[in-house]
């Protein structure tokens, strides 16, 4: 499985899907997050493999 981390939440998705699909399935927008794997930024077309851990960094700040 692939682990996705966003703020203080964590969940799992099936391997074989793209980062973009994982972001959309979580109800998030590609435009509003930056995906990081192994400490490196990755593009949304990256296909997730079993055992991957992807952290989604929220980019929006307000005030």
């Amino acid at each position: 499985m692939v682990k996705i981390i966003y703020r203080d939440k964590e969940w799992e998705v099936k391997p074989g899907i793209t980062v973009k699909k994982a972001i959309k399935e979580a109800g998030l927008l590609v435009e509003a997050v930056l995906p990081i794997k192994d400490g490196k930024l990755i593009t949304e077309d990256t296909v997730l493999k079993d055992g991957d851990v992807v952290k989604l960094i929220a980019v929006i700040s307000g005030g």
Binding site: E31, A32, L34, L41, I57, A58, V59, I60
Partner: peptide, 17 residues
């Protein structure tokens, strides 16, 4: 905003999240 966040991350700037 996505670009400025990417810049900070890639440049290794530690910012308040």
């Amino acid at each position: 905003e996505r670009e400025t966040a990417a810049y900070a991350i890639l440049q290794g700037i530690d910012y308040i999240y």
